[in-house]
Simulated assay, not measured.
Amino acid sequence: MKKLILFVLLPLLLLIGAGLGALVAGMIPGVSIPGLGGHETAPEEKKELGAPPTSQPSPVDSSVYVLPEFVVNIRTNRTYPVFMLLSLAVEMRDEGVRPTMAAQEPRIRDAMIIYLSSLTPTDLNGYEGIQRVRDNTWKILHKFVPEGDLVNVQIAKLTVK
């Protein structure tokens, strides 16, 4: 009788306990127990995805604020400097946002220069590199301009020399 408990019931109890522990911890994909764990807040944390798609149509009353061109020395291991020229067009909800953008422009430029100077030429390769710049520009803009005031951000010019 002791061998039956030792070799059959004890491992069975251990497996059931491990399964319940994995279920409660949320380690089983697609299965969740309502009210347990912090899984209700996880989708809200991933809300910030970056800039809206470039194909998104503009609202009727929107206006565009063009930031002056950025010329930034980007990071490289080469003996000669590598420069990036970037021009941005920020789409705003209406003309009432223009004074806010103008007032915050020095801070936006400073934050953008700090971000852009940390990039390398390989960070800017291809579609992913350009999209990364758009997404991070969108995040930087939201630090200085309220979220509802901005519609989109477009890269008008991006050149690496």
Rank of each mutant, 00 (worst) to 15 (best):
T41K: 12
G35A: 07
L23C: 01
L20T: 09
G30N: 05
A89V: 01
L4T: 10
T76A: 10
V133T: 01
S58V: 06
L15E: 05
P11V: 00
P57E: 01
M27N: 12
G126C: 07
Y65V: 13
D94I: 03
P146H: 01
I130T: 14
D110H: 09
L14C: 10
Q56N: 08
A156V: 15
E95R: 12
R132Y: 12
L158D: 07
E40N: 14
V31T: 09
M84Q: 06
K161P: 13
V145P: 02
T120G: 07
Y65T: 05
P146F: 02
K46L: 15
L23V: 06
T137Y: 04
L13E: 08
V145G: 08
F144Q: 03
N77T: 12
R132S: 12
Y65M: 07
L124E: 04
R132T: 13
M101T: 02
V151Y: 01
L9K: 06
L20E: 06
M112R: 00
M84K: 04
T79R: 13
I74H: 07
M92L: 15
P52K: 05
L141Q: 00
D61I: 11
F83C: 09
M84E: 02
D149N: 09
G129R: 00
K161H: 11
S55N: 08
M84S: 07
D61V: 11
D61C: 08
A103F: 14
V97R: 06
D61M: 15
I155C: 06
L10Y: 04
S55K: 03
T79A: 13
D61N: 15
R93Y: 12
F70H: 15
H39S: 14
S87R: 14
N73F: 14
P59I: 03
L141D: 00
V90I: 05
L20M: 09
V151C: 00
A22N: 05
G37K: 06
M84W: 00
D135C: 04
R93L: 13
T76Y: 04
L119V: 05
G37N: 03
T54Y: 03
I16A: 13
K157C: 11
P53V: 00
V153G: 03
T122W: 14
V153M: 00
P106D: 10
R78N: 14
P29F: 04
N73A: 14
V97A: 09
P34T: 02
Y127W: 15
S55M: 01
G19N: 07
G35T: 10
R134E: 03
L116C: 04
L12N: 08
Q56I: 06
K3T: 15
S32Y: 13
V72P: 02
E128V: 04
K161E: 12
A111C: 00
P34H: 01
G19E: 02
V90S: 00
